Amino acid sequence: MMKKILISMILGAGAVSAFASVQAASGTMLKNVGVERTENTLYLNGEVPLGRVDGSNREVWVTPVLRNGNDSIELGTTVIAGRNRYYQALRHDLEKREGVALVRSGANMKSLPLAVQVPYQKWMGGAEMHVRYETKGCCSDDLGREIVPLGRLDLEPKKFEPVFNWIAPTAEAVKIRELKGQAFIDFPVNKTVIYPDYRGNQGELAKIRATIDTVINDKDVEITALSIKGFASPEGPWNNNVRLAKGRTAALKSYVETLYHFSPDFIQTSYDPEDWGGLRAYMVKSNMADKQAIIALIDSDMEPDAKNSKLQRDFPDAYRFLLANVYPALRHSDYRIEYRV
């Protein structure tokens, strides 16, 4: 199959403004011009607005032309003719000429589509395009000619010449890197025991193991630190959320310690009883009706239990939605592995 190269005509800003400001003799301007090419064919598309020709015995010939030095080609002609010239053209079979379209002045159509294709030649790649407007009288007398430039075509494929820059990495006496992740471990209500087969826990625990294995199995690196931080969602009493966040973090630490031979104090843990920060981040990106009021409540200095109660009381619809769709993602464990190369 022939490879198709499709490149659009590029018109400079100056050419566009000049084209738009010149009024052709017929009162019409070529519009929506597009030029494309394949390997062997050039396509011209556009519209010829059908203005009214001044006089029944007059006609205007609209001809797009490509020119590059001594090479040129006409890309079809549209003849907009007054009443007498239109019928005379019909008698002389003007509309049957190849590349000529005949339209009577004042036709019901607002514009005539222009679609031309010609064999592509290399000289066309940088050719200038203009539109020639010729006004003729009753005996084909030449009553005036106007040339309106459109711009230069840029149709040849561009040559890519890569330039390489050598950037020396900054010297490091000790190369310390880190990996981070989040796991969403599901626990039964008010429980702090990990059940690997409970809901989606297998996949979440596998994420943690895969992250640790990535470092442990690389002989060029050494783990220097491993930390876990557990989060609980804001619903329920603060004291119970402290118990849950602390207990579930400890449970995940114990789970990891059963799989790997870390020293007893190697894994560092911390916890956040209620992830109000995660809830705020969700609200900022949401389109909820009470968005700003809820964000203001989250940012307030109110005690956590009072804040949760007010959220539930003042925004019951939003609270139900958050409880079902957002709060589960606020119960998560963030883990971070630091290692030395």
Rank of each mutant, 00 (worst) to 15 (best):
A20P: 08
A20R: 11
A20C: 11
A20S: 13
S21G: 08
S21Q: 10
V22N: 07
V22D: 12
Q23E: 11
A24Y: 02
A25K: 15
A25Q: 13
A25S: 12
S26V: 06
S26M: 05
S26Y: 05
G27S: 05
G27R: 04
G27N: 02
T28R: 09
T28N: 11
T28P: 00
T28A: 15
T28V: 10
M29K: 14
L30G: 02
L30H: 01
K31T: 09
K31C: 00
K31W: 03
K31N: 06
K31F: 00
N32Y: 08
N32G: 09
N32L: 07
V33S: 02
V33P: 00
G34K: 15
G34T: 14
G34Q: 15
V35P: 04
V35M: 08
E36K: 12
E36A: 11
E36I: 13
T38S: 09
T38D: 07
T38H: 06
E39R: 12
E39T: 14
E39S: 12
E39P: 03
N40M: 10
N40P: 07
N40Y: 13
T41P: 01
T41N: 04
T41L: 09
T41A: 03
T41C: 06
T41I: 10
L42H: 04
L42W: 00
L42G: 01
L42E: 00
L42T: 05
L42I: 03
Y43F: 15
Y43H: 07
L44P: 05
L44E: 00
N45W: 10
N45K: 14
N45T: 15
N45I: 15
G46H: 04
G46S: 03
G46Q: 02
G46I: 08
E47H: 10
E47N: 12
V48E: 08
V48I: 15
P49V: 01
P49F: 02
P49A: 01
L50D: 00
G51T: 07
G51I: 01
G51Y: 05
G51N: 04
G51H: 04
R52G: 07
R52Q: 14
R52T: 15
R52D: 12
